[in-house]
Write a protein that binds this DNA or RNA. Structure first.
Lengths: 194, 194
DNA sequence: TAGTTTTATTATCTTTTGATAATGAAATGC
DNA sequence: GCATTTCATTATCAAAAGATAATAAAACTA
């Protein structure tokens, strides 16, 4: 299949979800727009309706809540993943979460409107949406269950095992809120472990 | 649309997700089996592959984790909802969660295999799966974010507001683990509030 | 109904985490 | 390259939650 290099990573991921012929693939890539953004760039603001989702070709981004002026990290995403304020994107309601880049990013921007049009034309792409939602659910479930089942210390250990890149690429105070503790508390956990 | 009374509640819910003609609706109801089970009945065990999901016509059920012999509640579901160990059901992998009834239940049992066959025949039902996954994600996201954003006391207050039926129909020690605290701690929270 | 088991509350003590502040290290911006 | 800001660690103290045990209340069961 002919694929522009800019879409090769997306192709690899989408191939896991469904099989497309050339025409379908062209229609699919047609709804994405390439965008290059610097470090600390704000992609989604709390309160705005998020009309875009982002596939990360290169870089890192962060999904976070705002509570009393504090930023509380919900997730970190790197190359070859989608990032979106999914509830806002799906329901087109004001977002409870914001998205910033952590590094300069090369993104493929997916507009909700164009995705909906694509699905109208090719109902097959319901499978794409379904796969995204199922994957998001399963990832979130694993994360949420660790808040119910594990102590902050266990959560930190699990993160090291399962997502070591987070430690490499994300400032520690953002990791702290991701784990549900204060930066001070995370520093104590790290000391206890070492 | 002709609908047996046993499917009327399901019909009401599924109507919100997609529009079906008589033939499609008959095919859909054809993959469900009615099952009546007593209180405290075990529907899914940890470690088993969950090949069924359940629509609750009547009654209440609980989804829970097991940790060191303890049962830790993940969710409670009542009439007109689906309940499933969704990760296990979707991926057909061993379940991390168990399901028990809290009350005698009248269930419509949906088998994964028959759902897959139905989707093969009528690709339209991808929309059903998509809607289930999206809804599950959004519900879980709201719950997970309250573990990140709120104190146990705030979580209890939110539960009273948003899902007061839980207090009515679920024993307090199960609510405690659902909120991420011990029964002793929940009792203290209740005292502080009153 | 009486007896047993389960459940909720309260008390005591310990552990953990949060809040705050101080210090040093690192990163950022002119 | 120097000054400023941001970030991570450490210390101290306060608050909250966990562990355990005792008691009372409620629910089950024979």
């Amino acid at each position: 299949m002919k694929t522009e290099p800019i879409f090769s990573q997306l192709h690899q991921q989408v191939n896991k979800m469904l099989t497309l012929n050339q025409k379908e693939w062209d229609a699919f890539t047609g709804i994405f727009v390439f965008r290059s953004v610097p470090k600390k760039f704000n992609l989604v603001r709390v309160g705005d309706v998020s009309r875009e989702a982002y596939f990360i070709n290169k870089g890192a981004a962060r999904l976070y809540f705002e509570k009393e002026g504090e930023e509380i990290s919900a997730n970190f995403m790197f190359e070859n993943s989608f990032i979106a304020s999914l509830e806002s994107f799906l329901l087109q309601t004001p977002s409870r979460q914001a998205i910033d880049t952590l590094e300069g990013c090369e993104l493929l921007v997916l507009s909700k409107q164009r995705l909906d049009e694509l699905i109208q034309t090719y109902p097959k792409f319901h499978i794409f949406s379904k796969a995204i939602a199922e994957m998001a659910f399963i990832m979130l479930q694993r994360r949420a269950s660790s808040f119910i089942l594990d102590s902050p210390e266990e959560r930190y250990m699990n993160m090291l095992q399962q997502r070591p890149e987070i430690l490499e690429r994300v400032p520690q105070h953002m990791i702290a809120s991701y784990l549900g503790v204060t930066p001070v508390s995370l520093s104590r956990i790290r000391k206890r472990i070492s």
